[in-house]
């Protein structure tokens, strides 16, 4: 059986990397019975994912729940706690366990016509700017691109103006001064060529992007699988999931750091202690406020705490983490009824 796999991202992107790995894992786990063809973003792009899964254009796809905010109001609450993110792997596995165990989230995926099989996470976002940001005062009046509500709240709290902008426009907007910077992954230095326009990186830990659904599997495809096939498939997905985090949270940030250090036009700023303390205090208050609003948010916060301890113990090796996650999460799931 050959499955159509849609990472909705081009070659160098972490999602595409993860899908290439997944295709290999799928063959391994199924003994060659299941294979995958990875489709390029010219066939299925992120906004087209829902229709692609529902109409059979793709069997498995990288669907971003925040992109389909109306379809995933409950799953999306995990994104409201973005400022919690300090350990990429912990955020990813917390998101995975959250998606698997939260009943309203499962309903949302069913309604979406798909099955949730795990998540991944970015590295911890930082400030990438054209003006130096050394202290809280330097943030006053800066116009910063924001990738989501928590980052907008952070910026506003410190007197900066969050700007909504398609991520592909960041390069142009920064080079022309329409914005002063972005709250983003350091990987954007390479993947959106910010290394050509940025002047400063301020290492204030902001949070992660972790509301992902890596191997969103079309319900039709899932229903056609036998229990044995499902087990093999989930094993492959479970090994594939941390590959996104490994790539996006570790390998690529290391490359980007090296490129930034090699570039004499970019200064890396370690912010002063007051700034760091103020930022951490705001993040804690923001997370506490959101967790008080919604019991699901509180559940997610608890899972983050759980997985931070596990990652502390196991380390950052993807395969070791996948093995542990199998015991912690998937071994407890009845794949006969899962997603139905």
């Amino acid at each position: 059986q050959n499955l159509l796999l849609a990472p909705a991202a081009p070659g160098p992107h972490p999602a595409n990397y993860m899908y290439q790995q997944f295709a290999t894992f799928l063959e391994e786990e199924s003994g060659g019975a299941m294979t995958g063809t990875v489709l390029g973003p010219e066939v299925v792009s992120l906004p087209q994912m829902k229709d692609a899964l529902q109409t059979g254009l793709a069997n498995v796809g990288n669907a971003l729940p925040l992109y389909f905010a109306a379809d995933f109001p409950q799953t999306g609450v995990a994104g409201d706690l973005a400022l919690l993110g300090r350990s990429p792997h912990a955020m990813a596995w917390a998101m995975t366990e959250f998606g698997v165990t939260c009943a309203p989230c499962q309903d949302e995926f069913k309604e979406f016509g798909a099955v949730f099989l795990g998540a991944g996470s970015s590295d911890v976002y930082v400030l990438i700017t054209t003006k130096p940001v050394r202290s809280v005062d330097d943030l006053q009046g800066l116009r910063l691109r924001s990738g989501g509500a928590p980052y907008s709240r952070w910026a506003e709290n410190f007197g900066a103006t969050p700007v909504n902008l398609p991520v592909g426009d960041t390069f142009e907007a920064m080079s022309q001064g329409t914005i002063d910077g972005t709250m983003a992954s350091i990987v954007d230095m390479l993947s959106y060529r910010l290394v050509d326009v940025a002047k400063y990186v301020t290492d204030v830990p902001l949070g992660t992007y972790h509301v992902t659904s890596n191997f969103t599997t079309a319900l039709d495809t899932w229903n056609d699988m036998s229990l044995e096939q499902r087990t093999q498939f989930v094993k492959a997905a479970n090994r594939g999931d941390p590959q996104l985090t490994d790539r996006w949270g570790f390998q690529l940030p290391a490359e980007a750091r090296a490129a930034v250090e090699a570039n004499s036009d970019i200064e890396v700023i370690t912010p002063d202690a007051d700034f760091l303390a103020a930022s951490e205090a705001f993040a804690a208050a923001d997370v506490a406020a959101k967790a008080a609003e919604n019991p699901l948010s509180a559940d997610f916060a608890a899972l983050v705490e759980k997985w931070e301890a596990i990652v502390e113990e196991v380390g950052n090796d993807p395969e070791a983490l996948a093995a542990r996650a199998w015991d912690e999460i998937w071994a407890k799931v009845d794949l006969e009824t899962y997603g139905q």
Binding site: P47, A52, G56
Partner: peptide
């Protein structure tokens, strides 16, 4: 790959191509 995905292409290409800021 079949009629359903072909209909899917008709269904989601027009809007996603046109609704673009760039």
């Amino acid at each position: 790959i079949g009629l359903k995905p072909a209909m899917g292409i008709l269904q989601n290409t027009p809007y996603s191509f046109v609704a673009s800021w760039t």
